[in-house]
Design a protein around this nucleic acid. Structure first.
Lengths: 219, 219
DNA sequence: CAATATCTGTTGCATTTGCAACAAAGTTTA
DNA sequence: TAAACTTTGTTGCAAATGCAACAGATATTG
C-alpha cells in the first residue's frame, strides 16, 4: 500500500481530505524516519516529546522490570499511533521502550506542534486536536473496560464480563470475537487450557454455546 | 471551601488565573447544577455529551451487569472531573450510571463547547483543550500501569509490580503508599488476607520490609 | 485511661487455577 | 488426499488463593 493510502487511515487525520492531509503534514513538519529491524526508537527512561505514527513495518512497545525481564506490551502496525499518551502527558522518563520489530518507517510529530497554534492559522490544527482527544478518550474507555473484566475474581466471571461486553457492543446475543482461544486467554491474562475448561463448564451449565470464535450467550 | 478555591484546583483550568477562570466559565456557559443525594446524574444507556465537574459533595460511577448487579467503579470528589472520556469519545450509550453519593453541586460543560472555537476567540480554549489532552493522557498512563500490575499471574508478582512502580515514581527504595491493606487489596482486586499473607512471605524472603503503609524494597 | 473501633496478621480449608502433557478437531500445504 | 501443522479440548496434580473466623496491634473517642 502506498503512503497516501496509509495516511488516509490514520485516525489523527480523520475528517481531512488527501490534499488537506498533505498540507497538514507540512504544518506538522513532516519527518519520515526509517529504522532497521531491532533498532531502538524510544529508549526507556528518556523523555517523550513526539507522537509516533507507523507507516511501514511494525514497532513493539517493551517494558523492562527492575530485574531486566522484558515483556511485550503491544505491537503497533501501519496507520497506528504510539507514544501518544506519553507525549501528551509530557512524560520525562518513559516507562517503556519502543523498538523496531521489523524494518519500518515512521513519522514523528512533536506534540507541541499539535497543540501549538499554527503560523498559518490553519484549520487543520483544530480537527487534529479534536481527533487526538477522541483517540485518547476511546483508548481510555477500552482500558477501563479491560480493567472491568480483570477485576473479576474467577475465570468464569472474567469470561462472562468479556462476553457480555462483546454482546452489548454488537447488540446481539450471538457474535464473533476477534480472538482465538490463545489470544482470548492472553487478553484476560489467563491460562489457555483453564479458559477452555471453564468455557466447557459454562456450556454444560447452559450459560453459553460456542464453536471456535463464534459465541451465543443465554443471559 | 469556597467555590473559587475549588475552581482553582480543577486541572481543566490549570494555568489560568482566578480572573481567567471566571471569564472562561462564561465562555463555557456556566451551568451549576444541584443534585439531591441518591438522584441520577447520568443514566446508563443514555448518550453522554457533557463533561462533569464536582464542586461540592461527591458522585459515584456505577456499573450494572446484565443481571442487575451493581458495582461501584469510582467515587469522584470536589474539583475532579467525571464522564470526560465518554463525552470526548462521543459515547451514544453510557456503559455506566452516575449518581449523587451525597447532596452535591456540579458543573456540566457540553464537550462541543470545549473544542468548538469560541465566539470571543478567547485564548482560554487553547489552554483548556491542552489541559484536557493532558488529563486524558495521564489517566491513560494510570490505567495502563494498573493493567500492567493486573497482568501478573500471582499475588506476589502483582505486589512486586505495584511496589516497583511506586518505588520508581518516588525514585526511592523506601516510600509510603496511599493505601491501607484493604484498599491495596481492592486496588489490585485481591483478597486482603491473602495480600497480608503474601507480604509476610515476601518479608521472610528478604524481598521487602514494611510497617503499615511504609515500604522498603530490596530489589 | 478505658472502651471502642479500625486495621493488620494468622490459619485451616475447600476450591480454583496454572501447568504440563496428551488427544482430538480443524486447517493448510504439497 | 496424505501429511504436517495449528487450534482446541481434556485431565491429573500441585500450588495458589479466596474465604471465614479469630487474634493481636493500633488508633480514636468519650
Amino acid at each position: 500500500m502506498k503512503n497516501a493510502n496509509i495516511l488516509k487511515k490514520i485516525k489523527l487525520f480523520a475528517g481531512l481530505s488527501e490534499a488537506d492531509i498533505e498540507k497538514a503534514m507540512g504544518c506538522l513538519g513532516r519527518k519520515n524516519q526509517s529504522y532497521a529491524k531491532g533498532s531502538i526508537i524510544i529508549e526507556a527512561g528518556s523523555p517523550v516529546k513526539n507522537i509516533g505514527i507507523v507507516l511501514k513495518g511494525s514497532v513493539q512497545i517493551l517494558k523492562e522490570d527492575l530485574n531486566g525481564n522484558r515483556s511485550i506490551i503491544a505491537q503497533v502496525y501501519p496507520s497506528e499511533l504510539f507514544a501518544e499518551a506519553l507525549a501528551c502527558a509530557g512524560t520525562e522518563k518513559s516507562p517503556v521502550a519502543v523498538f523496531a520489530a521489523s524494518n519500518c518507517e515512521i513519522i514523528s510529530v512533536p506534540f507541541s506542534v499539535i497543540t501549538g497554534s499554527c503560523k498559518n492559522a490553519c484549520k487543520f490544527h483544530g480537527i487534529i486536536v479534536s481527533n487526538m482527544l477522541k483517540i485518547l478518550a476511546q483508548k481510555n474507555i477500552f482500558l477501563t473496560n479491560k480493567i472491568e473484566h480483570l477485576s473479576k475474581r474467577s475465570i468464569r466471571e472474567k469470561l462472562l464480563s468479556y462476553l457480555s461486553s462483546e454482546s452489548k457492543k454488537h447488540n446481539l446475543k450471538e457474535f464473533t470475537i476477534p480472538f482465538n482461544r490463545n489470544e482470548l486467554a492472553d487478553f484476560l491474562f489467563l491460562d489457555r487450557s483453564a479458559v477452555s475448561r471453564e468455557l466447557g463448564k459454562m456450556r454444560d451449565d447452559q450459560l453459553i454455546k460456542f464453536h471456535k470464535d463464534r459465541f451465543k450467550i443465554n443471559f
